[in-house]
Amino acid sequence: MINFFQNVDWILVLKSFVIGGLICLIGQILIDKTKLTPARILVAYVTFGAILGGLGIYQYLVDFAGAGATVPLTGFGNALAKGAINAVYEKGILGAFTGGITATAGGIAAAVFFGYIAALISKPKIKKQ
């Protein structure tokens, strides 16, 4: 355990926190200041991440901030684009259709699995405000 903490790159943790936080801050501003619904903001984030990923720009952000860039929804879009591009190199044009989902299969399967577990063990509740 002590070894684990000694090996943590604290600068990267800080960068990850700031970049991840900034991405979320933009989402919060969009909720508060525009009439965009949360569903649209979600789709826009994935699309925006895919475009930046496809153009190779998002990778700079990933290199800089690690999980701060890969965990938010834009990171999911980036993974979709990257997966599709890599699969085209490996399998040809069909890879453009299969690569995205292959690359993000872990995330999608985890979302389904944990969503199902959450539905089994919890009950919907009223919100506080």
Partner: peptide
């Protein structure tokens, strides 16, 4: 609006 399970924020 939205399912409560989504937990989205309500505008002012």
């Amino acid at each position: 609006r939205f399912p409560l399970e989504l937990g989205n924020q309500r505008p002012q």
